[in-house]
């Protein structure tokens, strides 16, 4: 009995291990895909930073001066990232002024959205 069960277990394990080898050949995902996960600061994380700065300021952990300086620093960073995204989208037909206005509006919109989220949730 023990031998029969043993053989069944062995057969099952071999089935598990061999089945993938019988499939058509497929390459593994290249390591380059990991590049996307690298240390690049994403727009979402900059928005999260701005949100956290605002919260810290409201909780009196940051001085006015530091808050304004850091806020403008990260807003500029967000603007840079949006501009980069827009450039990549091939949206270069617009004038530079319009792009800047669009970016400012987008940041404000995103921050307002985060505030509203706080209100709603």
């Amino acid at each position: 009995m023990g031998y029969i069960v043993g053989l069944l277990i062995l057969a099952f394990c071999l089935y598990l291990v061999i089945t993938p080898l019988l499939r058509p050949k497929q390459s593994t995902k290249p390591l380059e895909v990991l590049e996307e996960e690298f240390d690049e600061i994403s727009l979402e994380s900059v928005y999260a930073t701005l949100n956290e700065l605002e919260m810290d300021y409201n909780m009196q952990k940051l001085s006015d001066e530091d808050y304004q300086r850091l806020k403008s620093e990260y807003e500029n960073l967000a603007a840079e990232l949006i501009a980069k995204e827009k450039r990549q989208d091939g949206n270069s037909a617009k004038s530079q002024d319009n792009v800047v206005k669009d970016i400012e509006a987008e940041i404000e919109e995103e921050l307002a959205k985060l505030r509203k989220e706080r209100e709603e949730k």
Partner: peptide
Amino acid sequence: LGIYKQDQRLVDSGKAATLAVFILTSI
């Protein structure tokens, strides 16, 4: 081998082997 040859079938077989090892340990 799967890493070296960049063959997903080998990697999948390895994954299946880890599952088999877990089942055997459970047994």
